[in-house]
Design a protein around this nucleic acid. Structure first.
Length: 431
RNA sequence: GGGUCGGUGCCCGAGUGGCCAAAGGGAUCGGACUGUAAAUCCGACGGCUUCGCCUACGUAGGUUCAAAUCCUACUCGGCCCA
């Protein structure tokens, strides 16, 4: 099977290459034929999030170019905690949590990678498989012997932590050896010649490359991309509101996922389109240019949001998220029909109440709290006082009551908090 | 094990007996301006039955009219010594 010779150039054009091992050797090897390439994810959270997005997309780019992707779940390394990019020691996760997290990431992987493709199917591996049975003596002899402490201490991630107040535990210090061992194992058992990761992984990746060379004399390859950072320099991964952007529909609905990208600022658009979509660089240039002509139409954000939502959640979910957004931000809510409201109820945070709540006078504050629109009665009062709540598009004050006549289609009531957050209240008959 | 410094609200960080629900900054949330953008400005930012009350400054006790501030024990973390 032949491979796409333009892969490296495309990644370069997108600005997705931060560091590589010997660039020419890598280009030659990729041109020669399919390469097995791995990207490791530690299951430290119940699902994957934006932080893993570039990795998944890059694996996909490799697969589309004819290479063989290996997503590696860090069932073993997840128990240790990678100090890279962390300023303080991690809490160790228990076995049960890890297993549950692992189960959570598999479906997401399937969205991105083809595991059934004839010639170069993706293969999911878990480093527990070869790590749990590893004896400490073997480990020290086969891995530790080939690495000097000097080398390890020189790594950026370790240096930072040694300079800090909290120090670094031996456990986390050892993390890079386990990762290097993974690479070696994959090289020997899966003919995996390449590891990719975010730039914070560079130290760990190059250590693995070195280990492979010392143990086998062979040349392995590494590639990292720049980290996706927010303006303040912190890792990307949260919405403006500080909510983690999950890739699992259970943890973040497609609508909210879509909204997270719709709200992206103009300055970030080009970069995000290049890094996170499969649109060609030419298409992106065009899109960014037309966006600049009429920024208020937000064509750039719309495209980014729908491309990404489709990638992560599928075409149907992406269309539904776009429809819901159009209904909510497009015009007067009063004009929406029952079907649209029912559709919205699936997309927007919706709370169901018994109709009897409508009979309480002055029920607004308690409804806001019960629907988790405000976290306390004090906050609800504050929001109302600051003109932050609109019921059915009308700003309301303290003391307002939601009654039967306020409902649309005798069931729904739409509450806005601020400009961007929308909630639906649904009133139904009690049992 | 010894010594030493420290543990304050979402985070950083002031405060060393009353004027402390606790300075300042960041984050966040509302408002104005806009384009569901950025920048800027304004306001809020423990809870409640809100002119008052309750809960909070590592944990548990104690001294005092009064403690985040003093004392005791415990606990956790940094650093130094062994």
């Amino acid at each position: 099977m032949s491979t796409d010779p333009k892969l490296l150039d495309d990644l370069t054009a997108r600005g997705l290459i931060q560091d590589t091992t010997d660039r020419q050797a890598l280009a030659d090897r990729l041109a020669e034929g399919p390469v097995t390439v791995y990207y490791g994810v530690d299951p430290t959270a119940p699902s994957l999030h934006v932080g893993n997005l570039i990795g998944l997309l890059t694996l996909r780019r490799f697969q589309q170019a004819g290479h063989r992707p290996v997503p590696l779940a860090g069932g073993a390394t997840g128990m240790i905690g990678d100090p890279s990019g962390k300023s303080s020691e991690r809490n160790l996760l228990g076995d049960d949590d890890l297993q549950a997290n692992l189960a959570g990431i598999v479906p997401v992987l399937r969205q991105f990678l083809d595991f059934d493709e004839g010639e170069n199917p993706a293969k999911l591996l878990d480093n527990r498989a070869w790590t749990v049975s590893l004896s400490i003596l073997d480990f020290l002899r086969d891995v530790g012997k080939h690495v000097t402490i000097n080398q390890m201490v020189a790594k950026e991630s370790v240096k930072n932590r040694m300079a800090g107040d909290d120090g670094i535990s031996f456990t986390e210090f050892s993390y890079m050896l386990l990762q290097a061992h993974d690479f070696l194992w994959l090289f020997e058992h899966e003919r995996c010649e390449m590891q990719i990761g975010g730039s914070d992984q560079w130290g760990n990746i190059s250590l693995g490359v070195d280990l492979i060379r010392r143990r086998t004399g062979a040349k392995a390859h590494g590639l990292t991309w720049p980290l996706l950072l927010q303006k303040d320099g912190s890792k990307y991964g949260k919405t403006a509101g500080g909510e983690t952007i999950w890739l699992d529909a259970e943890l973040m609905s497609p609508y909210r996922f879509y909204q997270a990208w719709i709200q992206v600022e103009d300055d970030e658009l080009r970069k995000l389109l290049l890094w996170l979509t499969f649109l060609s660089t030419a298409e992106i240039d065009e899109l960014v240019a037309s966006h600049a002509e009429a920024p208020h139409r937000r064509v750039g954000q719309r495209r980014l949001a729908s491309e990404l939502t489709e990638l992560v959640h599928g075409a149907d979910a992406a269309a539904a998220a776009a429809d819901a957004s159009a209904a909510i931000f497009g015009g007067p809510v009063a004009q929406l029909d029952t079907m649209t409201f029912e559709m919205l109820a699936d997309e927007v945070p919706t709370t169901r109440f018994d109709r009897s709540r409508l009979d309480d006078p002055d029920n607004l504050v308690s409804l806001l709290v019960d629907a988790s629109i405000a976290s306390s009665r004090s906050e609800a009062g504050r929001l109302l006082g600051q003109n932050g709540i609109a019921v059915n598009d009308v700003k309301v004050d303290l003391g307002v009551t939601i009654e039967r006549s306020s409902l649309y289609h005798d069931r729904f009531c739409l509450v806005r908090k601020g400009k961007k957050s929308v909630f639906l209240l649904e009133f139904v008959d009690g049992d």
